[in-house]
Design a binder for these strands. Structure first.
Length: 593
RNA sequence: GGCCCUAUAGUUCAAGGGAUAGAACGGAAGUUUCCUAAACUUUAAAUACAGGUUCGAGUCCUGUUGGGGCUACCA
């Protein structure tokens, strides 16, 4: 029997039982983990079975329980409370589970599924540095890829760089006007930060001009459209699409600065990609698709020359695909990028990790692709995650009210250093190892903080309250792991090897094995639901359970050698499982801290 | 205005239609001659409001109210 699904195993037995007792082949069975306050491991909910058997839930429960004890060797006992049959499995059963987990080198990872999935994440704009919102995106995307791999899928991680468009022109224009030739070299600033400053600078100037126009009596809407600097930016985009050399050179230079900055941030975060797409290289294909769509009559041209798609049959409005000046928009290039990917790779699912504010965009993207007749549009999925809010609302790059990714990472590492040094356990650790540890712990705290939240939900980040290192946190799990390593190190020094099977499992040990046995299901569920949070919460539960065990039960001081070795084996398996779980979140675990 | 998402302790998060709604932080009170106290133990504290479906609702449906997002020739 496979160690991975206790509930399924019991369910099979109950099915046999219901068949034997009531002659029903496919009664709907509801099984769940037994709540802590009751005696038992797996619980059968009896209400529907009561209807089926024509007996009261209590009677049916007793009957089934007796049958199971008599016919299934792994069932040790049962009790019925109200409408619930609590089934207790034998210690031998749990011991066998532990043995199988220990044997399984890749516990929690599934064999190859034959399925290939592409995950797009990060998708930055090259006009500003990464902020906390991007951090959530990057961590989710990277973790999702890891989780899908653990589910046996082949995963292609891709990035799509929004390297062209009006917003890029804005920072370019502001740089031309206000920078006096400032470069990362001349100023010592990180490239993406430098460019971001000019994006903010553009907005400042734009607002100034709009307000000046309004003072001359121009209406607000009109002023927003007519501000000279905006017109200049629009013209610059046009020149870019026409291949103007000066604009192109500036664009390449400034984007180069940004890429260098991004690479540094990605490296610090520990995320990576198998392939990077650039919108500057796919938008022409998008324009091509728009042309084809026009020919097919899927799209139409308005009097001013702009191209639209009418989606009123699908419950949406009209969608712009090409501006009246012929330049392309976000949707245009996304059409091109999607088609290119499906023509380049053979995958069965494409997951876009993109914020929920773009739900509409992705619905429309799929509908348009469908209208164009691309059958693969159905394999597009949007992992829509909630925004990260600050106490006073949304972050806005334009207004500079953002939590910068680099600053945040540096702060976390600094806090980790401070905390560690205060505790003073590292006096004999070499300096470079200490640096690694501070980085691990700081990033562990940040990553866990973000990934433990259900991706769909908006989350709040208060910069004034630094991210915790105690309680339900990454460092808590890291600390648990370090303790396990410490005990195992000492065991090795005493030449004690972990070993399963020579002793009975105590009650506390069974609890831990139960937790361990849940892990594969958690990985599977995290894969289908695209939710790293499930893995994070699982790891916390396991670590918490372990810490309680560790506090109460002596391990190295146990006198019975067989028991001691078995406890060591259990420790080892908890450590192994924590390590795998954290790997799926992109969090490293230190062997001491 | 229309469409979508959301509402759980003081705060940040959990809870596959099932039992007495779990944690963490913060608050209060404890534990270190003992394998790492970044730990452990005890304690107070919550399902926005009103209906409905169900044997059973934080969970599903309707309405109300609050919060957020989208509805751009921004991405």
């Amino acid at each position: 029997m496979c160690p991975m699904n206790v509930e399924l195993h019991v369910k099979q037995k109950v099915t046999d039982c219901v068949k034997a007792l009531y002659g029903s082949e496919d009664a709907p069975l509801q099984l769940q983990k037994t709540r802590k306050e009751f005696e038992g491991d797996v619980t059968l909910v009896l209400f529907s079975l009561a209807t089926l058997s024509g007996k009261s839930p209590e009677e049916a429960g007793a009957e089934i329980g007796e049958w199971l004890v008599a016919n299934v060797p792994q069932v040790a006992a049962f009790n019925v409370v109200k409408g619930f049959l609590n089934i207790k499995l034998s210690n031998d059963f749990w011991l066998a589970q532990l043995a199988q987990i220990a044997e399984d080198e890749s516990f929690g990872r599934f064999p190859p599924s034959g399925k290939t999935v592409m995950v797009e994440y990060s998708s930055p704009n090259t006009n500003k540095p990464l902020h906390l919102g991007h951090v959530r995106n990057n961590l989710l995307g990277y973790s999702l890829a890891k989780i899908l791999e653990a589910n046996g899928h082949q995963v292609i991680k891709v990035n799509l760089v929004n390297d062209r468009g009006i917003h890029i022109c804005k920072s370019m224009l502001a740089w031309q006007k206000f920078a006096n030739g400032e470069t990362p070299q001349s100023s010592g600033k990180k490239g993406d930060h430098l460019v971001g400053e000019y994006y903010v600078r553009f907005d400042k100037e734009y607002k100034r001009q709009v307000s000046a126009l309004r003072h001359t009596g121009v209406a607000e809407d009109e002023a927003k459209r007519q501000a000279p600097i905006l017109l200049e930016a629009q013209n610059m985009l046009l020149l870019w699409e026409q291949g103007n050399d000066d604009v192109f050179d500036l664009w390449e230079e400034m984007n180069g600065w940004v890429y260098e900055g991004f690479d540094a941030t990605y490296k610090k975060l520990g995320v990576s990609f198998d392939k990077t797409y650039y919108e500057s290289k796919t938008y022409l294909l998008g324009k091509e698709i728009v042309k084809e769509g026009l020919k097919k009559g899927v799209f139409f041209k308005k009097e001013d020359g702009a191209v639209w798609c009418d989606l009123s049959d699908n419950g949406f409005d009209q969608k712009l695909l090409l501006r009246s000046d012929g330049t392309s928009v976000y949707m245009t290039q996304d059409l091109g990028t999607a088609r290119q990917r499906f023509s380049e790779y053979n995958f069965s699912e494409l997951i876009y990790v993109v914020g929920s504010e773009q739900n509409y965009h992705f619905q429309v993207l799929k509908v348009i692709l469908k209208k164009l007749g691309y059958a693969w549009c159905d394999s597009i999925n949007h992992l829509s995650y909630g925004m990260v809010e600050l106490p006073d609302g949304k972050m806005k790059s334009r207004e500079g009210t953002v939590v910068d990714a680099d600053d945040l990472i540096d702060d976390m590492i600094a806090t980790a250093r401070e905390t560690s040094l205060e505790l003073g356990k590292l006096t004999d650790m070499p300096e470079d190892e200490q640096q690694q540890l501070f980085r691990m712990v700081g990033l562990g705290a940040l990553k866990y903080f973000i990934l433990k939240v259900d991706p769909k939900k908006t989350m709040l980040f208060d910069p004034k309250e630094s991210i915790d290192f105690n309680g339900n946190t990454g460092p808590f799990i890291q600390y648990t792991f370090a303790r396990i390593c410490s005990v195992l190190r000492k065991a090795r020094e005493q030449e004690l090897a972990p070993s399963v099977g020579a002793a009975d499992l105590g009650e506390r040990e069974v609890e831990l094995v139960k937790n361990l046995a849940d892990f594969p299901q958690v990985v599977a569920q995290a894969g289908t639901e695209h939710s790293p949070a499930l893995v994070a919460n699982y790891a916390f539960e396991l670590a918490k359970e372990f810490n309680q065990y560790y506090h109460d039960i002596p391990i190295l001081k146990e006198e019975d050698v067989a028991v001691k070795q078995q406890r060591l084996a259990l420790l080892e398996q908890v450590g192994k499982t924590l390590k795998t779980a954290m790997e799926l979140l992109g969090i490293e675990l230190p062997e001491r801290m």
